[in-house]
Nucleic acid binder design. Structure first.
Lengths: 338, 338
DNA sequence: TTGTAAGCGTTATCAG
DNA sequence: CTGATAACGCTTACAA
């Protein structure tokens, strides 16, 4: 049996109110009684039931985080950054990992919105907001991060990669590549769509038409990067854009395996979601996302919303940046994250 | 304002007891009233406050997970496996990421043991159990995984690498290597200690004395793997054992950078905590941990303990296995996890 | 300076 | 078959 506040009160010979007040420092008590209470707490190893406290006060000092893939360094990095920012303000964070599975996302959502947290930060796997809207109580503090389900109106923080991807593609075109392969990430995500549009727009402006055979649909994991790259090489492609780092890892593995030299036999451009040594060591052009900044902003935003739930939400939009080889930011980190 | 059970009762024109009972299917109601209640729930978008429910019932259907490093694929893999097993039994999982920081571990422990979960699974960063014992209420269902703080007596699941590491080291010795480098992981962990003992034991049995200069202390991250490997190479070492995969990644990066060929210029043996393509493609000997199995067992054990809190806890001990090059298990996965 | 008691949103035990 | 009501462990007026 876990000890409760009444046990402490009995042990200390005071009322439960007094115990509560010394714990929370919420009114003055004499040094003598304070000591008695503190001793009792120590003897009984008491710690308050935060669930009961939350029920009474409506405050939990906890924010929930729903992330699609903790095995992806991009998201675990975001998680770490959010944790840091929240703990600066006395909040804890708990995570639910959905693995891009919509059912798991729904059950995580139900869990985190039904009384244990003050608010949530979510990177949703859903394409349309209406499919999850039911599970987020109206007015419940929440900010969407990285991905924006269609139709969502409230708080969000994301980074636009459109311009940077377009620039990267244009750069490859400028060097004379006509047939540029594209490895796309999970189809239903807003980020996926936007990056692809950057690619398409660059082609269009160069007066080229889209070749569907050069656009391969991956699933954001390294395995699909490998397979898509294989197909593209068989198509005879000599330049490629890869729309996330995990798939880039798989793609590079394929190129290694078949002996193609990056920067020589084939030109590679890729999203760079996090520090990774191969990006430093090889001739890879990258589109960098300010992931940490996005995370910080999301954390601050959820805290604002928890404090002022009635204010209207809004979107924060950051920009990704294009880097030619050797121009990576954060080059102090030449070590693989992995 | 979140809708509560009284709102639903009012809307449906029944008592709150009835609402509760249709939600939980805990007594018979006529189809007519059931319908009224269900409609009301739907209209109002009601979902029960699990915190209040937990307060009343003492059941949360939630287990907390405390993990030291979600950026390490070893742990995110364990997390995924635990999630799967728990959800099979109707439980959810929430994670707290400590990043090997003892303060964060303590605050996570306080959070998860004080009313929101039914039990916890923890991979602790503490060396001695007494330093966290205060924060785990006596009798609170908990199982330790992967690492065993000194003095802990209850439920735990871990894998012993002693024999396998010894075997790996002996193998290198057998091939004529006398000066075998060792890159150790975080010093305070039981797993670190045990692996090092495997190495030392092999040397001793070969009649060799320990050379402290060949044992480098890392911190379990890839960066330290890089640096330690650099030092060892400067020591003139031509064979090395690396005691976790993350550090192996860093170490291999160093070897790449200075042009040393693995399996030729230097022999590498390493813990293999998860599937990783370089282990498949290069001449690296590995000591494999059954991480997924460990996770499954831990999940089942915590469920048992939640159901029967009074039974005595016990230790489950798995064995790591030594593999020479090309003998890796799970070779269907030739893709990098990363 | 301290204690009593109401109430947070549920479930469960009674009656009806 | 359904409705009042006590209780879960806590915080917080309100009293003393």
């Amino acid at each position: 049996m876990k000890t409760k506040i009444t046990d402490v009160a009995k042990q200390a010979g005071v009322s439960i109110a007094t115990v509560s007040h010394v714990i929370n420092g919420t009114r003055h008590v004499t040094d003598a009684t304070r000591k008695k209470v503190e001793d009792a707490i120590h003897i009984l190893d008491y710690s308050p039931d935060i669930s009961a406290r939350g029920l009474k006060t409506g405050k939990k000092n906890l924010v929930g985080l729903i992330t699609p893939d903790l095995g992806n360094r991009f998201f675990s990095l975001i998680l770490e950054e959010i944790e840091d920012e929240l703990s600066l303000h006395g909040y804890n964070a708990v995570v639910v990992n959905t693995r891009e599975n919509c059912n798991r996302e729904v059950s995580g959502l139900k869990l985190l919105t039904s009384g244990i947290t003050d608010g949530i930060i979510i990177a949703s796997s859903f394409q349309n907001y209406r499919d999850i809207a039911t599970y987020i109580p109206k007015g419940f503090p929440s900010v969407h991060i990285d991905r924006l389900p269609r139709g969502y109106q409230g708080d969000s923080v994301r980074v636009s990669s459109f311009s940077a991807v377009k620039e990267a593609t244009a750069d490859l075109l400028r060097e004379g590549h006509i047939r540029i392969g594209y490895i796309a990430s999970l189809a239903r995500l807003s980020s996926t769509e936007e990056r692809l549009q950057g690619y398409e727009c660059a082609l269009k402006e160069a007066g080229l038409s889209l070749d569907p055979a050069l656009i391969k649909q991956g699933d954001s994991h390294s395995r699909s990067g490998y397979l898509c790259m294989q197909q593209l090489v068989e198509e005879g492609v000599r330049a490629v854009f890869i729309s996330n780092s995990l798939m880039a890892s798989g793609a590079l593995t394929y190129l290694d395996n078949c002996g193609m030299r990056i920067g020589q036999d084939i030109q590679v451009a890729s999203m760079r979601d996090y520090e990774w040594h191969r990006f430093q060591r090889e001739s890879i052009r990258t589109v960098e996302q300010p992931g940490r900044e996005m995370a910080r902003l999301a954390a601050r935003r959820i805290l604002e919303r928890i404090e002022r739930p009635d204010e209207a939400g809004s979107e924060i939009l950051l920009q990704a940046t294009y880097h030619k080889e050797g121009e990576h930011s954060g080059t102090d980190n030449v070590f693989p994250v992995f």
